[in-house]
Amino acid sequence: MVREILVYPDKRLKVVSKDVINFDKELHKLLEDMKETMYANEGIGLAAIQIGVAQNVLVINLANEEGEQDPANLVEIINPVILESEGSITYQEGCLSVPSFYEDVERKENIKVRYFDRLGLMIEKELDGLMAIAFQHELDHLNGHLFIEKLSFLKRKKFEKEWKKKLKERK
């Protein structure tokens, strides 16, 4: 089921998510809904809090060379943590909760992560490139943060002004 994505400045996006304890049918349903919601909105990642569920759950599916998302490449990530990080990379990010806004954000280039899959099996991996960026972006959501918080003071002020104008136009 495609669910509604919360849009900034919805206060629920500030909620810090809690670890998943039960790896059950309810979790599996959440993962399926998140996948469908992400695909329906043409995203490459989605955190559960973006659909109003304060659990440490994310899904990521990067597009291939043809620009398509192969469902076989979907990564379901539960209770993620970054164990190590190094380097620095700047990438133009966007967010389903801040539609039609893109800005350069600096993140760690290489990260070592630990998370669980839908069955509760622990996975440790080293990530780099867009996968590392997407992982950090989505993990920020679980901690109640949006990528716009990483912008410089001047860029953030400019964003807030443009965003308020855009919200007025929608009403």
Rank of each mutant, 00 (worst) to 15 (best):
I82C: 06
V15Q: 13
E162M: 14
L46D: 08
E66Y: 06
K158G: 00
I148K: 09
K35C: 08
R114Q: 14
I44M: 13
H141W: 01
I51V: 14
N79Q: 10
Y115M: 12
V57D: 03
D104C: 01
A40D: 14
Y8H: 13
G45I: 06
E124L: 09
F159D: 01
L74M: 13
L31E: 01
M1P: 15
V113Y: 05
V113Q: 09
I51C: 08
G67C: 04
Q136L: 06
I111Q: 05
E86M: 06
Q136M: 07
N73Q: 11
D128N: 09
L151Y: 13
K11D: 10
V16S: 07
V2M: 08
H141Y: 04
I78K: 02
F159I: 08
E103V: 00
Y102S: 04
V81E: 12
I77R: 01
L83Q: 08
C95E: 02
D140F: 07
F135R: 01
S17H: 13
G67W: 07
G52M: 15
L58C: 11
V2D: 02
K164D: 11
L31W: 06
E84P: 11
L74V: 10
R114S: 10
L30A: 05
R156L: 09
L130P: 03
M38H: 06
N64A: 03
H137G: 03
N61I: 12
E4A: 12
L146S: 03
P99T: 01
G67A: 07
K157V: 11
V59H: 03
Y102C: 05
H137N: 03
L127G: 00
T90R: 15
G144S: 04
N22C: 05
R114V: 07
K165D: 05
V16I: 15
D24Q: 02
L130S: 01
N79I: 14
D140P: 13
N143T: 04
S100L: 15
E4H: 11
K25M: 10
G94R: 09
D117M: 12
K157S: 09
N64I: 04
S85C: 05
E162T: 03
D140G: 14
E76G: 02
E162V: 14
N79H: 10
N73P: 04
E42F: 08
L83D: 06
K171W: 12
L96M: 09
G45S: 03
S88N: 13
H137C: 06
Y91T: 12
D117Q: 09
D10N: 14
Y39D: 03
F101P: 00
V105S: 00
D140S: 06
K161G: 00
C95G: 05
T37R: 01
G87V: 15
G144L: 14
D19Q: 13
G94D: 07
G45P: 10
L58P: 04
I148T: 12
A54Y: 01
Y91A: 08
K14C: 10
S85Q: 15
K25V: 10
F23E: 03
G43H: 04
N143F: 05
E4W: 09
R3S: 14
G67F: 11
V20E: 09
L142H: 00
K25P: 02
Q92I: 15
Y8S: 06
K11Q: 14
D24L: 02
E84S: 13
E42W: 13
L58W: 03
E66G: 07
E86G: 10
A63V: 10
L121V: 11
